[in-house]
Amino acid sequence: MKLNKIHHIAIICSNYEKSKTFYVDVLGLTVVQEVYREERNSFKLDLAVGDEYQIELFSFPNPPERPSYPEARGLRHLAFELDNIDKAVKELEEKGIEVEPIRVDSLSEKRFTFFADPDGLPIEFYEK
């Protein structure tokens, strides 16, 4: 078996409009398609990262919370590569997003930081 790439990441949010605003207006992801699925009382928003479609944002009535702190088993965080972490952190802070101090990965010597989406999902920015 040979896997080619990650096709998409699915995120279930508690407040669809708030999360849509965060991923589209704050992070700048591009809307590919938005669908309301009446039978599930659920929105599905397909978002592109760069030139690829990679994130599906879902809304469902009353989804249970997923613990992040202390760190729980399962998906740990979502990471985005970018060229200039200082500029990205400044843009997030100007939009009212709290960002952890920039650190350096001891193995790769690359700079990175974390912040959270509206539901507390940890998101990492990792400098190229």
Rank of each mutant, 00 (worst) to 15 (best):
L3K: 06
L3E: 14
L3I: 15
K5Q: 09
I6H: 00
H7C: 11
H7E: 15
H8C: 07
I9D: 05
A10V: 00
A10G: 10
I11G: 08
I11L: 03
I12Q: 06
I12W: 15
I12S: 01
C13A: 05
C13R: 06
S14F: 00
N15D: 15
E17T: 05
E17L: 00
K20L: 04
V24K: 05
D25A: 00
D25M: 00
V26T: 12
L27H: 09
L27C: 01
G28E: 11
V31M: 08
V31R: 02
V32M: 04
V32C: 10
E34N: 02
Y36C: 03
Y36K: 07
E38L: 05
E38T: 08
R40K: 11
F43C: 07
D46L: 02
L47G: 11
L47Y: 01
A48Y: 10
A48C: 04
V49H: 02
G50D: 14
D51M: 06
E52I: 09
E52H: 13
E52T: 09
Y53S: 13
Y53W: 05
F58R: 06
F58G: 09
S59P: 03
S59I: 07
P61G: 03
P61I: 04
P61Q: 00
N62M: 12
N62E: 15
N62S: 13
P63W: 01
P64T: 12
E65P: 11
P67Y: 02
P67H: 14
Y69I: 15
Y69N: 12
P70M: 12
E71Q: 14
G74W: 00
R76P: 11
R76W: 15
R76K: 10
R76G: 07
L78V: 12
L78D: 05
A79D: 06
A79T: 02
F80W: 04
E81I: 08
E81F: 04
L82V: 02
L82N: 01
D83I: 08
N84K: 03
N84F: 02
I85M: 03
K87G: 00
K87R: 13
A88C: 06
V89W: 00
V89Y: 06
V89P: 10
V89C: 07
E91C: 01
E94F: 13
K95C: 04
G96P: 12
E98M: 08
E98T: 12
V99I: 06
E100C: 00
I102V: 09
R103M: 01
D105S: 01
L107C: 09
S108V: 13
K110N: 15
R111M: 04
F114V: 01
F114M: 10
F115Y: 04
F115N: 09
A116E: 15
D117N: 01
D117M: 07
D119T: 08
D119V: 00
E124K: 09
E127M: 09
E127Q: 07
K128S: 12
